[in-house]
Design a protein around this nucleic acid. Sequence first.
DNA 1: GTCTATATACGGATAGAC
DNA 2: GTCTATCCGTATATAGAC
Lengths: 238, 238
Amino acid sequence: MTYRQFTRQAKLTRRDFCLEMLAAHREDIKAKKDETAVKNLELIFQATLEVSNQKGFQAMTMRDLSRASGISVGAMYDYFNSKESLLEMIQEAGRRIAGRVMRQAVSGAEAPPEKLAAAIRAHLYLSEAMQPWFFFSYMEARHLGKVEKQRAKEGELATERHIAEIIRAGKRQGVFADVDHRLGAAVIKAMLQDWYLKRWKYAKRRVSVERYADFVVGMAHGFCRNGLGDAGPREVRQ
Amino acid sequence: MTYRQFTRQAKLTRRDFCLEMLAAHREDIKAKKDETAVKNLELIFQATLEVSNQKGFQAMTMRDLSRASGISVGAMYDYFNSKESLLEMIQEAGRRIAGRVMRQAVSGAEAPPEKLAAAIRAHLYLSEAMQPWFFFSYMEARHLGKVEKQRAKEGELATERHIAEIIRAGKRQGVFADVDHRLGAAVIKAMLQDWYLKRWKYAKRRVSVERYADFVVGMAHGFCRNGLGDAGPREVRQ
DNA sequence: GTCTATATACGGATAGAC
DNA sequence: GTCTATCCGTATATAGAC
């Protein structure tokens, strides 16, 4: 699948994101008309990610947010109860959307190599389409309350377990070599995360998400089919 | 090289770290006796990483820090001029030490495969020995001023360029396949970072730094020698 | 050299006018 | 539905006693 095909089928615009937030918190939000509510949520949502991804959520003041969104401090409080609840609303909505998209994106493939490729591509395309949210989610996870933090961690581990499972199935079916599926999944996950954590780096080097996806899929396939290369001598001349 | 051998030759204790900080800021620090100064710097340094790696540097108050270090707020200000300068002192000292250790750790090997392995091992062992600092440095880079932020970014890119250069040399000498050395270096870097960013995960799974190093070296060698695996069909049934 | 007490400022949240 | 003005708590930083 190409990135274009992916974005056309998945609903991942800013508006979709805010519709998700509105649906989950309809009664807490003071604005009566959905149209008004979504419009302002979009302004607040975008401003939060913008300022927060630059200087951190804690460092962002309500005055900063008011300036960046164009909505007064008082009015913003019609859309969330506290700064902390704003953080949670954003994390929650993103997790919901990401989970939904991932589940249906990998429902096609059957054979382990294609399944692995599909999972890698889906994750990269998703994190490309929602890059600011993925970055935000990763960097601000520490500032969540206990329950929410646990959920965020769960979401992360689920991706990793999913990849590990595909590799394990491939080993059982004899199409993959006898590799360490857990460590393999861990480093593949690390490569996936690098895409949204170091977005600026790849943008500067003009690496497209498709090229990066091809590369990571190639790495994963090479590893699963051929196993590790010779690790070489452990001793190094000093 | 094993991790034990590495730690024995490199000076990476908390005390060494604080000696570095003291040397760089001797005249700003009010305490006259070096012994007192280093002792208190150690308490402040450890407390800062402890609290900060849990809840973030911004969220850590001077009262938190006072409680965790056992030094009163007033006394702490005899060791730094502001909260921000404390952040910079820690980042600066760590960068200095890490740079020094990396330079001499990779000075032995000659052939590209061994050179690559040495660079990977050195980075992993170093980040293991200074894990709290590496984590701190990564997560708090956003809160640095312009100049310091630039320096932090430079340090990161240097590691990556170094790895890319080794791969390029291997290609020229014909011991490595014709792979993309820049993307290869980027994902190897991502694997190195995962070690200190997700330390708890590997600890829980009882993966030692040596085993992880063997694994990453194996991945890197497999990639450099055999190139990418078949990337498979791009189309996935929907 | 270290502490307590405090000056000063700033942040989150709200009340009430429009 | 939105804004301004403001309350109140808490944060950083310092002064001055011991």
